[in-house]
């Protein structure tokens, strides 16, 4: 390669490296601040600040959704497997909000470590399945559970 072109190539490589380093640093700093997202166990251990808008989320606990009969008020528990966080919310919940699904709430913590949410969003996973297949999968899963249960019973 021509020496001048070689020099230009070096400059280009230098630009890419320098900007990558700058971006890497920004990513690292953002990771440190973790954009105010807290898991239920972090909240209950007192790691989350009070009266500041934070985001918290986890899996909605089965049977924990309590709806008010005369208003849009709703309360439910979210869990990360270690601790349960209670969330209060008043408003319409998204279509995908359901027991056993992930939800992320934005709001402020009150004194009793309960999150007063101003927004509740449903998070969904990257899996896509047709309803019939999902039903069949669920049936197969239930059947397997049943078999396991029966074999355990038989062992006893």
């Amino acid at each position: 390669m021509h020496p001048i072109r070689k020099q230009r190539l070096q400059i280009v490589v230098l630009i890419v490296i320098a900007s990558s380093l700058a971006a890497g640093l920004i990513v690292y700093m953002l990771g440190q601040n973790a954009n105010y997202f807290f898991t239920p166990s972090q909240v209950l251990q007192g790691e989350a600040p009070k009266n500041i808008t934070i985001r918290a989320g986890g899996m909605v606990v089965d049977g924990s959704i309590e709806r008010s009969s005369d208003s849009l008020d709703v309360s439910f528990l979210v869990t990360d497997g270690l601790a349960d966080l209670k969330i209060y919310y008043s408003g319409i919940l998204p279509d995908l909000f359901a027991e056993g699904e992930a939800a992320i709430a934005t709001g402020k913590l009150d004194g009793d470590k309960v999150l007063q949410a101003s927004q509740v969003l449903a998070k969904h996973d990257e899996n896509y399945t047709p309803p019939e297949v999902a039903d069949a999968m669920k049936q197969a899963y239930d059947l397997k559970q049943q078999e396991q249960y029966q074999s355990q019973e038989a062992k006893k």
Partner: peptide, 21 residues
């Protein structure tokens, strides 16, 4: 993958089968 995001992870993966029917 790096942040706690609302956006779901990639459905089409470089390695492994896609998580889609």
């Amino acid at each position: 993958d790096w942040w706690q995001t609302l956006h779901q992870p990639a459905t089409i993966k470089f390695t492994g089968a896609p998580s889609m029917h």
